[in-house]
Design a protein around this nucleic acid. Structure first.
Lengths: 202, 202
DNA sequence: ATATTACCTGATCGATCGTTCAGTAATGTC
DNA sequence: GACATTACTGAACGATCGATCAGGTAATAT
């Protein structure tokens, strides 16, 4: 993702996995079994390598986790920094942020999935939770602004509304699979529709 | 929860923890750190006992997990079996199920939290996932029925709507804490309001 | 007082954990 | 063909994992 995902620009050295490929497989395994339940031996087995070979690509199992969480957090924070999040009235900006969050979630599905399961068991995990909290605060501020503008219901607390709606968005990682029945644009549209207007017919 | 949670009906033998007390502490730890990241030594330390003392109360660490997951699943299935889930039009029944699910989730918070984090790493976990799927199917059938009755929007797939709305409900375990700013009745009301009518003002 | 029941300790087991290290293998560049 | 670069093996490490077992302690019922 950070390095070249191009064809094959004549890599030097013995052929094999590079760091990003190992990371991608690791994140898949972490999501299948959980980070703690996944051993380095599991990862080596899935790649067809020995355990020690992996330590050529990274310093520790935890470093893999840190790299993956950064990937997810960079994407989410990018949603709030994109121009659509700053232009228009609060309701329009809120819709853009919801839509952007869904798209990032789908495009970086394994990384965001991993992020959403972090519980704070280590310094790496706690740092990721801190960045998530900062993201939530910025979104809550946007919801509160939309409430003051009369565009979001004020009979429910803004922080609660934010948590519920982002709970809905985040839950997508539990079932969405690319290539399935729902494409990313359709999903983003549906989420914004249900979040803003509810499931009931008017 | 299954045994006597009454006052103290004169228990015989040396005083100490009983099985349900050990289970409650275990579930708390599983939720704090994750099931796999929690060792039997962690649990013993939290209780002020030795590891071997714990095996007087249960056969294996996994049995604790199974007991906890049953507690959560019994509660959720009870929501669909209560009378309110069968009387009235589909929209009313759907509202009752949503409300019931929120209340079970709050009342059995630690157990449901644990259930929602299960990934299928063992037979016990896979059996729990199977029961969850059956629950989801019953709810989806209710949503589909409400769509046919014209009471739920038909421009979004019923299964997607169900997943999104229950994603919202389930996400409550990530932040709700009893005794906090929001009480259980208020939360149930807010969830039903946002799920059915959305966050936007009309 | 004593038997019964329940609860707990300390030592230990084999398996698996993440990690290290010294050496080997295969490629592109010159 | 020498050389730098990249990728990997096999054996071992201390630590921790879930679990077992034989024995010890403290309350209640009779």
């Amino acid at each position: 993702m950070s390095a070249s995902t191009d064809a094959s620009p004549a890599r030097r050295g013995r052929p094999g996995y590079d760091r990003d490929q190992v990371l991608a497989v690791a994140v898949t395994l972490f999501n299948e079994q959980g980070y703690d339940a996944t051993s380095v031996a599991d990862l080596a087995s899935r790649l067809g390598l020995t355990k020690s070979a992996l330590y050529h690509h990274f310093d520790s199992k935890e470093q893999l986790l840190a790299l993956a969480l950064d990937e997810a957090l960079d994407g989410l924070e990018g949603v709030l920094d994109q121009p659509e999040a700053s232009i228009g009235d609060p309701a329009e900006r809120l819709g853009a942020v919801l839509r952007g969050a869904v798209l990032v979630l789908v495009d970086k599905l394994p990384y965001v999935t991993l992020l959403l399961r972090v519980r704070g068991n280590s310094d790496v995990e706690r740092a990721a939770l801190e960045r998530r909290r900062a993201f939530d605060h910025r979104v809550t501020a946007l919801v509160t602004e939309a409430q003051r503008a009369g565009q979001v219901r004020a009979d429910v607390d803004g922080a609660v509304t934010t948590r519920l709606v982002f709970g809905m968005v985040n839950s997508i990682v539990e079932w969405y699979r690319p290539g399935g029945a729902v494409d990313r644009e359709r999903l983003a549209h549906d989420v914004v529709a249900v979040a803003l207007d509810g499931m009931r017919t008017r």
